[in-house]
Design a protein around this nucleic acid. Sequence first.
DNA 1: AACAAAGCCAACCGCTTGTAG
DNA 2: TCTACAAGCGGTTGGCTTTGT
Length: 295
Amino acid sequence: MGRRGSDESGVKKGPWTPEEDTRLVDFIEKHGHGSWRALPKLAGLNRCGKSCRLRWTNYLRPDIKRGSFSEEEQQTIINLHAHLGNKWSAIAGHLPGRTDNEIKNLWNTHLKKKLLQMGIDPVTHRPRSTDHHHHHLQQLLAAAQIQLLHSILQGLIMTSNVPNLLNDGVSDHMAYELLGTTGFNYSNLIQDQDQDQQAAQPDDQFLSNNQQVGSSTYSVPVPVPTPNYLLSAPSSDHECSPLIDHNQLFSSSLRDFMDIDEASNANYWKDLIIDQSSNQPSHGEYAYLFGKVDS
DNA sequence: AACAAAGCCAACCGCTTGTAG
DNA sequence: TCTACAAGCGGTTGGCTTTGT
């Protein structure tokens, strides 16, 4: 690339010296930049016009805010990136005094990693498919499917005329067997649950895996990982709003499944935050699926 | 203290878009 | 409409600084 020294036309490249900065600033303050191509010669700089323009717009402009980004600025960038993608100049337009280059650098060096650490895909702003949280959610949904199937089978059997089934009811095993025909792998669920229990740490950011919640005990008909985990805390300053349909559908089936008394455990069920346009959890914010368990 | 690896960021490249003639 | 030039933009890179061993 050769960013140091000069190219074949004799134009200097590489880092700017304080003397060059002074010349450029003095000239622009007196005359404005006018034509960038003409500027270097007029200002007595051995640089190409493009280099002068970049130096001015990214570093020397008087309205540039120097210093590190505040938490608020970082959150703004994340939120804007979720909407705009890598449109750095558009994002910079919302952050007075910050350049697109600066924001791009911050994104590539800090924010991308930060989101990855949170289990969020920095491109889609959704949970990564391999992520711990998402994995648990898939398990939970699979387990809920078992329970639903279990109920359906039970209903079918009650209306059937098979004596031993009327006596014994439908076994979990039968439900798993039937669910297996849909492609669901029950053995993976058991294995994953064991691994999760082994991996559980006291200082885990997620809520503990208690079966006992306050004075209530879950009645869990099939072995499932307890779904008391927090997916993500929503921020308050974007255009998400709670929509009741997804939430109601999902939470009510879970309530039934977990056999939790709705009135005494109302605090556990918080609204899913759903983006109105896509009707999906978005902006890198998923939802409080479950709230605190220690009420 | 010395070295290597990782982090960081200013500056560059090249493509795209806008505009004047 | 076409052409040339300027400016905008996003991706990439080189080298300095910081951190880890």
